[in-house]
Each structure stands twice: as structure tokens, then as C-alpha cells.
Write a protein that binds this DNA or RNA. Structure first.
Length: 927
RNA sequence: GCCCGGAUGGUGGAAUGGUAGACACGAAGGACUUAAAAUCCUUUGGCUUCACGGCUGUGCGGGUUCAAGUCCCGCUUCGGGUACCA
């Protein structure tokens, strides 16, 4: 019998499906293990060979855990809302729901071929009303909550209302957009509308006028993580700043917990570091500066309180509310012109343009420590959204302030002993402080920092300003609230209606609020979002929200829904949540480091505060799979001809490299006939060959259609089978490393499976015997068990595949086909190559499924070696080896080595200075 | 600029401080075959030698050590993330 993978794979895939082998149920008798893949956005292009990499890795782990006796939850679904389907709808009129379900069907077909152990009964799609009902529900809970900074958790807004009516803002410590102060009497006197407006300032889901990333080409607002270098991540369209009324989530309230939580989870250091940087905690001080000759003061934020004696000017962000107050009459025109010019520029232009710009406001601030009057400038290098939107500029010790001071000829006062600021600023937080205050400018009882280190000076200044009421210690975060409105059609509708211009939540009993049908997927003539086209988009006569939710809405809690996907009473039942708890192993790409992986953690923490979920962190362990790059092939056309020259001859001609479809190239040799048929342009192509072959050039590039280097897993499965694909993807290299896909090596793993098969069948004869295995055979088996177990636990799957190859090669060399060795081997292999393993498991006489076998355990007794091959080295260089008994003493090894003829030859008369014997390892003779 | 990763044969990669290059691809040679495919066997880092062997070798330069791909210091270079965050 031949290894006929097609037959085997179809047979067992059908068997698994019919017998619900991968159905997961709550079972308190067994420990749970939850393995999750980042669910895909079903794009029209289908899966390429890079996508399943992580899925195969998680599948192996799921199957391994099951063999180890765990009750494994391993679900899959689709992140079904998204821009591409909508853009396609605009172009073709095809409803995004239609495109999406077609794409999903295609994805499913491709996934099914690979033999994953997903429990498909738990499939979710974010665009299904049954699913997004709970996305809307969570939004309502966020609207009805505020974040209490004293209790460090979300609390009901009703508690806030109660507090306001009893004591106003007195004693309030809540996360908010703006610090407000009012009394109970003032609150109670306010109208419903005014009160609602104030509450928005505290709600976790809130509506506010914000400076947002507006992308005109997409016609929508984008979140910070959806914009990179001034253009949209999707499509690369320019993004500009615009103030708009938008829904936002107060993610910033959770900044500290998001930061601290990182210490409790098992993620890679680099990913944690990325999140830490994104959260961007910085400890500093807020300090108030009075405005000279005015009854005004404003607050700045600094992490370098120690440099307050070196402040030579102040800078406001152009968007700051203070600009209006501080601009004097004679500077008004200049300031307005500057602000107008700044507004016109897109984010991208501002980033690209490194030129210093700014304008003097006309006002002066007073340094509270020196009483010096210092000019207040306005410049776009200060951001409105960070800190207070105002800074004290210390050009000697901040490079941006330095550039500004140089440009506008402002004074630079160095504050560190011996630092040279003639060419650049001294930004390092080290050295001894001087000039603080300057000699002769000391004040009685004033702050003196001279002689201290920077660190000491910062601490002393903070203490001083707090005591004197000049400011306070403050922690700032770079993390911004997440803008949650999108002016698009294909997303979750907000469960929101408007009454008197104020937002209200629709009743939970009316959920889900379904996405309405519209005639065209474009904004209305009035520039409203597409939902403005929906008929009767209102509730009880009140208009509904026209924006929809962003892509990350549906992916923020999907891992919870898998625990209890059909529940229509709750997002997840307490029973299911308390059993499955959180994701034990999450596998996905690093590209979600600052988006999905922050939002999910936030969302989960919020639900944790509500008592809906029992674990504060959603993903205990996370592994990033590397990207699979493409390996492109090139042909070389001689310029202005239709003649192509083989790689090693191309230097003799003037050629243009042209991408050629990798699917018509094998081992870099071009199939010339297929090439002629590939494109009509090449029908009459001529070739200059070498050794009768056309050899292509190659390069590693992104896998994409335009490079003609896309490899479809379906084709691989068709030609070699799913088990070969699975093994080969793992064999390519460490899971977390990026590497190019090169189909060339695949024959190796396919040969391995054929050789494994040959241990069972010789021709049509089944040759497995029940004979007792020899010590040698048992050693081969147990060595493999040990290695595979270790490798799976450490996600080193590439070396596991090698270990299987070594094992089979060794058994093959011994012509060994014994049940007692092959059966454990088949079980070991089952997580990697489940189809062939299932077939062989049954051939060995087993019933049921190999998925429920018991993972073999290594018996070290079989691994004991009687002898050790000692490498004998001289001055670190190995010259020969000696085979000695394993239990030989150190002294005896030394004596044996020294008395050897070859040793005498190597020493050549010299006396050894030192002999190092590492028992069981090596001997090194130094002379 | 800053923060993370990498750099080992023609290629993908392996190696708790202890014989660098496991395993696999490719290549070369051979067996089987009328032939091809498949399969099997041998060789395969470089230089050198008829051969035994020798020299050299993990991006570069130093260092620690009996012993360094592995640890430390300083560079080069390639990926990825981030960008006026005060």
C-alpha cells in the first residue's frame, strides 16, 4: 500500500466531523485549556500560505494538551466588519454582507482542508446581530459607567449623580475630560440637558468634540493606531486633523492598570515594551505660571522640574484655549495667521516638515522661582493633547526647545556643570546642577539646587513646589482615549438616540439594534454618514446615531463569546466564564500590539469591574508568529527584445529583471512552456539557457499578488497533503521568526512521511510485528518522546520535526517495525500530522480517535549510556576522541587520557600545565 | 532620533559556555530501471594534501575563560515598532 494522503485526509476529516471529535463541553472533572488564534478578517484574496502558520502552531498545542488530559477549547470565527468589503460595495453595489459571507465560505473551505481541531459549533461572526448585540450591550454599560480613581475601578454613573446632588464635585476623584467644580446646589439647579452634558465629561463611553484623525479619502475618522506617519494604515490615504463630535472610550482611565497588568502576563518582553511605550507613563510635575500684569495663570507639565531656573520662554500649543487669552492686541494678527497656517497643514506635512515655526503671543509669564518675566510663544511642536498643552521651555536641556531658541534667538541658560550647549542641548538626566539659582540671584528661603545631582534636584523641586502651592506632582500618560465613531456603513450601529441634542441609550431589551438597509453605501448629500440614507432610522420619533463602531469593537471581547456563543441572556454565562476563565495561549501577529491587544485588555478590565468576567487579564500567554515573506523569482529580459537570459549569463547583456509567477518555477528553474502561456506578451519569448535550463533569480519580498509570489495552501494540500503542509510550515524555522516561504524544501518532509509509512507497509504487506523491542529501539523511541515533549512545551516545533525525522531514519536503518515502538510514535506525531497519525493508529488496531490517546511519557531508564565519547582537546582544540565508561571517575579519565599515545604525540615533549576534565563532557589539556 | 529583534554553508535552519553546521533542501556521484518518476546508497563550509592529516571558519574589532556562535564592551549592517509625549 502506498501512502495515499488524499484518501486518508478526506476519510478522517469526514470521520472527525461526523463524530464531533472537536466539540468542546464544560467538564468540571477535567482541567481546562483555552487556545485561541487571532481571528481573521475574511478578505477577498483568500488565505495564502503565511496565514495558517499561527493556526498550525496553536492546533499542535491544542492537540498536545488534549493528549495530556486537558479539556481544550479551540474555537475560530471571523472579524467580519471592515473597510475592504465596504469599499468594494461602493465600487460594485454588491452588499458588504454578501461579499463577506462569500469570503467566509472560501476561508472555511481552505481552513477545513488543513485539518484543524476547531470546535466549529462555536463559530462567531462579528457582523451577526446575535453577536454584535453584546458589543452594543457593552457600549451601553460603558456609557452608564464612570471611572473612580480612588477605587481604581468603573462605577455606575448613578452613584455619580447621587454624589453630585449631595455634595457637588467636592471630594470627587474621577477620570474625566476636563476638571469641573460645582456645588450640590448648582448641580440641582441645572436643567436635564445641562446635567447630561456634565455627565458626558465622566462617562467611560462619552461623546465629545475632539481633534480627530479625519481621512477624507475614506470619509471617516480613524483611531491613533489606524494612522501611521500621517496616512491611514489601510490604503495609505492622507489624514488631517479636524475637530468633530465623536464617541470615545475612556481607555486612558485604565492606563495605570494596563501598565501594571503587563507584569502579570506571559508575553514577550518586546511586546510588553511596545505596550509600555504606547501607554507612555511619565512622572513629573504640574506647575502654575502667572501671567505678567494680568490676573491670569496657566499650568504646564514637566518631567524636568529641576530645570526651572533655565526656563527662558514658554510655549503653547496652537489649539490651546490659552492662546486666545494670552494673545495681546498688537500680536493678534500674527497669531491668527500662524494658527490658520497650522490648521491647513495635514499631519503628514507637519511631520515631514522639520522646520521650526512659531509666533510670539505678546504676553509674558512670571517664573515663580525667580520672578523673571519670560515670553510666551505659540508653536505646533507643542501638542494640545498631551499634558496641559503648554510647556516651560528649557533650551539648554531639551533638543526641541533648543532648536526653537536658536531659530528665534532666545537665550539658552545651561544648568549642568561642565555641559557644552554651544552646538546642541544636553538632554541627559545626569550631572551636577549649577546656576540654580544663578550666583547673586539667591533668595532668602528660596529653592537652591546647586551641587545636587539631577535626580536629587527633581525630587527637591517637586517637594518645594508642592509645599509652596506652586504646583503638584503629576503622572501623565501618552495613551489617549479611543475614538469610537466611524462615518461608515459596515460596522455595528450604536444603540444611541438623540433627544434635545443629547445622547441616550436605547433600552437593553431592544437589542440588537440591527444595521438597516440603505440604497447606496455613500455619505448623504448633506455629508452625513451612510446611515443617514436609512429609512425610519429612529426610535420613538427620536433620531438614531448615524455613525457605526470601529473595527476593534467586535474583536475586543470575542474570546469571551466563544465560551458561550449561543447565549441570548448574557455575553457569557457565569458558569461558562468561571470554567473557561481566560485564554491560556493566544497566537497572533505583532501588528496588533498597540490596537487590538490594548483595547481587549481595556474592555476585559471594564467587564471585570462590572463583575461580568472573573479574570482581569484576557490573554495569559501570547506568542507572536513571525511573518511569512514571499520569495519572488525573476526572469531577465534583454532590453527592447523578447529574449530572456538565464541568471548566470545575464551580466553579458543589458537586462531588465521581471517578476515571474513562482508557481511556474521549480527549484529556481523556469518551466519555459508555462512561461510562454502565462502571459500573451511572452508567447513568442526566446530564451538563452545555461546547461539547457533557464535559471531564475530570486529575492525575499512581501508576499503579494503584484510580486507573483503568492502561494496558496490549497495547491500545496492538493500536491502533498495537509500533513505535509503542516509539518513543512513548522519545519521552516522558529515560530516567532519571520522567514520567506520557499516551496523548494517541502519534498523533505513529504519524504519523511513516506518513509514513516514504509515502516508499516512493504508493498501491500503490513509488516508491523508484536515483537519485543530491543534496548536500542526503546532508546530511539524514548529519546524522541523526551525531545518532542520538551519542544512542544517550548514551542520549538521546527526542531520537533527534525527529531521525528531522526527517529524514523534510525528505525528505518534498523528495519524496525514493532508495534510497541510505532504506536507511541504515532501518538507523538498526532498533533503535527493528525491525518496520517489517525490512519496509522487505526491500522495498529486501535478504535476511537488518536486525539483521545494518552501522550507517551519518557522513561529515562532507556536512555542511560554505558560509555561516553570524550573529545580530547589540546589548548581548546579537539584532536581525537576516547570512548570511556560513563561511570569512570574524573581522575581515572584524566589518567587514561594522559597515558594515551596520541596525547604524547600532541604534547610532543611539552609538559602539560593543566588538565581539565568535565565528567561526561570533555577533556582539555593545556600545555 | 529612540525602543525592540536579528546576522551561522549555495538555501531554510541546529547547537544547557564543552567536537559549530543536527535535520532538511539543493548539488555531485552511484544502484535499480529499456527509460523516466519514485526509492535506496555515498559525498557535500572554505583552503590545502595522492593520502593520513593540517590550516581556517558563526557580520567586524577588542575582552573574560582551560574552553565563546553562546558571556561582557565598542562598532557595522539588516528587519520591525515608534515618532516632536515636555
Amino acid at each position: 500500500m502506498e501512502y495515499s494522503f488524499r484518501e486518508i485526509e478526506q476519510k478522517w476529516q469526514a470521520f472527525w466531523k461526523e463524530n464531533n471529535i472537536y466539540k468542546a463541553n464544560i467538564n468540571p472533572e477535567k482541567p481546562k485549556y483555552y487556545v485561541l488564534d487571532m481571528f481573521p478578517y475574511p478578505s477577498g484574496a483568500g488565505l495564502h500560505v503565511g496565514h495558517p502558520l499561527g493556526y498550525i502552531a496553536s492546533d499542535i498545542y491544542s492537540r498536545y494538551k488534549r493528549l495530556k488530559g486537558f479539556n481544550v477549547l479551540h474555537p475560530m470565527g471571523y472579524d467580519a466588519y471592515g473597510l475592504p468589503a465596504e469599499q468594494y460595495a461602493i465600487q460594485t453595489g454588491q452588499h458588504p454582507a454578501v461579499t463577506t459571507s462569500k469570503n467566509i465560505a472560501r476561508y472555511r473551505e481552505q481552513l477545513d482542508k488543513i485539518g484543524f481541531c476547531y470546535d466549529w459549533s462555536r463559530e462567531i461572526r462579528t457582523c451577526e446581530p446575535d453577536y454584535y448585540k453584546w458589543t452594543q450591550w457593552a457600549f451601553i454599560q460603558m456609557f452608564n459607567s464612570y471611572y473612580c480613581n480612588d477605587e481604581h475601578q468603573a462605577r455606575p454613573v448613578t452613584e455619580l449623580v447621587e454624589a453630585f446632588s449631595e455634595q457637588g464635585t467636592e471630594g470627587l476623584n474621577a477620570a474625566c475630560s476636563e476638571e469641573l467644580k460645582f456645588t450640590a446646589a448648582e448641580w440641582n439647579a441645572k436643567s436635564e440637558k445641562e446635567q447630561q452634558k456634565i455627565l458626558l465629561n465622566y462617562r467611560i463611553a462619552y461623546l465629545a468634540d475632539l481633534k480627530v484623525n479625519w481621512c477624507p479619502a475614506l470619509g471617516t475618522v480613524l483611531a491613533n493606531d489606524e494612522v501611521s506617519e500621517g496616512v491611514s494604515v489601510r490604503g495609505g490615504h492622507p489624514v488631517e486633523q479636524r475637530v468633530m463630535r465623536q464617541w470615545s472610550l475612556r481607555v486612558s482611565a485604565y492606563a495605570q492598570r494596563l501598565l501594571e497588568g503587563l507584569d502579570t502576563i506571559d508575553w514577550t518582553d518586546s511586546l510588553k515594551e511596545t505596550q509600555r511605550n504606547w501607554i507612555g507613563r511619565s512622572e513629573g510635575a504640574e506647575m502654575s505660571f502667572k501671567v505678567k500684569d494680568e490676573d491670569l495663570e496657566f499650568t504646564i507639565f514637566t518631567t524636568r522640574a529641576d530645570t526651572v531656573f533655565g526656563v527662558t520662554f514658554m510655549v503653547l500649543a496652537p489649539e490651546s484655549e490659552l492662546v486666545e487669552q494670552l494673545t495681546t492686541a498688537d500680536q493678534k494678527q500674527a497669531v491668527e495667521a500662524y494658527i490658520a497656517a497650522t490648521k491647513k497643514r495635514t499631519e503628514r506635512e507637519r511631520i515631514a516638515d522639520k522646520r521650526v515655526s512659531g509666533v510670539f503671543s505678546g504676553s509674558y509669564a512670571v517664573n515663580p522661582l525667580t520672578d523673571e518675566a519670560i515670553p510666551v510663544w505659540i508653536s505646533d511642536y507643542v501638542l494640545a493633547g498631551y499634558g496641559t498643552g503648554a510647556i516651560m521651555a528649557v533650551p539648554a536641556h531639551d533638543s526641541r526647545d533648543y532648536a526653537f531658541a536658536k531659530h528665534f534667538n532666545l537665550p539658552i541658560v545651561p544648568l549642568i556643570e561642565g555641559c557644552d550647549v554651544s552646538e546642541e542641548s544636553f538632554d541627559a538626566k545626569e550631572g551636577i546642577v549649577t546656576n540654580s539659582p544663578k550666583t547673586g540671584a539667591e533668595r532668602r528661603g528660596g529653592l537652591v539646587l546647586n551641587g545636587l545631582t539631577v535626580k536629587e534636584a527633581i525630587a527637591k523641586t517637586k517637594l518645594y513646589i508642592a509645599e509652596k502651592g506652586l504646583g503638584r506632582v503629576k503622572v501623565n500618560y501618552r495613551l489617549r482615549d479611543a475614538i469610537f465613531s466611524r462615518q461608515r456603513y459596515w460596522g455595528e450601529p450604536f444603540p444611541v438616540y438623540y433627544k434635545d441634542g443629547m445622547p441616550y441609550m436605547i433600552d437593553e431589551s431592544k437589542l440588537p439594534l440591527e444595521l438597516p438597509e440603505i440604497d447606496k453605501f455613500l455619505p448623504t448629500e448633506q455629508g452625513e454618514p451612510p446611515l443617514g440614507r436609512a429609512k425610519a432610522w429612529e426610535i420613538d420619533g427620536y433620531p438614531l446615531e448615524l455613525c457605526t463602531m470601529p473595527g476593534f469593537a467586535g474583536s475586543s471581547a470575542y474570546y469571551l463569546r466563544y465560551m458561550d456563543p449561543q447565549n441570548d441572556k448574557a455575553l457569557v454565562s457565569t458558569e461558562a466564564n468561571e470554567y473557561w476563565r481566560n485564554v491560556d495561549l493566544y497566537i497572533g501577529g505583532t501588528e496588533h500590539a498597540t490596537g487590538h491587544l490594548i483595547y481587549s485588555r481595556f474592555w476585559n478590565k471594564f467587564l471585570f469591574d462590572l463583575g461580568v468576567v472573573c479574570e482581569e487579564e484576557p490573554f495569559k500567554k501570547l506568542i507572536n508568529q513571525g511573518m511569512i515573506q514571499g520569495r519572488s523569482n525573476f526572469v531577465y529580459r534583454i532590453k527592447d527584445t523578447n529574449t530572456f537570459v538565464s541568471l548566470n549569463l545575464k551580466e553579458q547583456y543589458d537586462t531588465t529583471p521581471i517578476h515571474v509567477d513562482v508557481n511556474i518555477v521549480s527549484n529556481d528553474i523556469l518551466d519555459v512552456e508555462k512561461f510562454r502561456n502565462w502571459n500573451p506578451e511572452y508567447k513568442n519569448a526566446e530564451f538563452i539557457l545555461e546547461d539547457g535550463k533557464y535559471i531564475c533569480g530570486w529575492a525575499v519580498e512581501k508576499m503579494s499578488k503584484s510580486m507573483f509570489n503568492v502561494v496558496n495552501p490549497d495547491d500545496i494540500v492538493e500536491k502533498y497533503g495537509a500533513d505535509t503542509l503542516r509539518l513543512y510550515e513548522m519545519f521552516l524555522g522558529p515560530i516567532e521568526q519571520s522567514k520567506p516561504w520557499d516551496t523548494n524544501g517541502i519534498d523533505g518532509v513529504h519524504r519523511f512521511l513516506k518513509r514513516l509509512w514504509s515502516l508499516f507497509y512493504k508493498g501491500d504487506e503490513f509488516i508491523v510485528t508484536r515483537d519485543e523491542p530491543s534496548a536500542e529501539e526503546l532508546k530511539i523511541l524514548h529519546k524522541t518522546i523526551k525531545k518532542i515533549t520538551y519542544d512542544i512545551e517550548n514551542f520549538s516545533y521546527n526542531t520537533s520535526v527534525s527529531a521525528f525525522m531522526i527517529c524514523v531514519n534510525e528505525l528505518f536503518a534498523l528495519k524496525s517495525s514493532k508495534q510497541a515502538v510505532l504506536e507511541p510514535l504515532v501518538i507523538l506525531l498526532a498533533p503535527f500530522a493528525p491525518h496520517v497519525a489517525e490512519e496509522l493508529y487505526h491500522l495498529l488496531g486501535n478504535q476511537g480517535t488518536v486525539c483521545d490517546a494518552r501522550f507517551p511519557v519518557c522513561n529515562d531508564a532507556y536512555l542511560v549510556e554505558n560509555t561516553v565519547k570524550y573529545p580530547i582537546s589540546f589548548n581548546g582544540k579537539v584532536r581525537f576522541t576516547l570512548e570511556l565508561p560513563a561511570d569512570m571517575s574524573k581522575e581515572e579519565v584524566e589518567r587514561t587520557a594522559m597515558s594515551n599515545d596520541q596525547t604524547a604525540k600532541q604534547l610532543n615533549g611539552s609538559a602539560p600545565k593543566k588538565v581539565i576534565v568535565v565528567p561526561g563532557k570533555i577533556v582539555n589539556i593545556v600545555f
